[in-house]
């Protein structure tokens, strides 16, 4: 049962991340791309590691994966924020209305 749930979670995570990469190529403007990266990618990472945790059961391995997830959830939005801030400070123009 846990095998099946883990596989389903991993598959869903792959769908999320593929959507994210598609969005990186589809949107024409930088600020829209960075929005994609900050949201879809974090969700994909959490889902995939949740799949791994469900599949491996309760042990030391799961604890380490949990530490990685906490660290990633803390730092990835921060990294994205610093990229967007750098672009904004360098007078990168904001997008027009058409998307």
């Amino acid at each position: 049962m846990s095998e099946l749930v883990g596989n389903v979670l991993m598959g869903v995570a792959l769908v999320f991340m593929t959507c994210g990469v598609y969005g990186i190529f589809r949107f024409r403007h930088f600020y829209l791309r960075i929005l994609i990266s900050s949201k879809v990618d974090t969700v994909g990472f959490i889902t995939l590691t949740a799949g791994i945790m469900v599949k491996s059961g309760l042990n030391f391995f799961t604890l380490k994966v949990l530490i990685i997830v906490v660290f990633f959830v803390l730092t990835n939005p921060l990294a994205t924020h610093s990229i967007a801030r750098s672009a904004y400070k360098s007078q990168y123009p904001l997008p027009e209305d058409d998307v």
């Binding site: 660290f71 803390l74 730092t75 921060l78 924020h81 610093s82 801030r85």
Partner: peptide, 16 residues
């Protein structure tokens, strides 16, 4: 110094 958010969260991250 960088933005306030980076400074705060990295202050939280140092000990770890």
């Amino acid at each position: 110094p960088d933005s306030e958010i980076v400074a705060r969260i990295s202050g939280l991250l140092y000990p770890f």
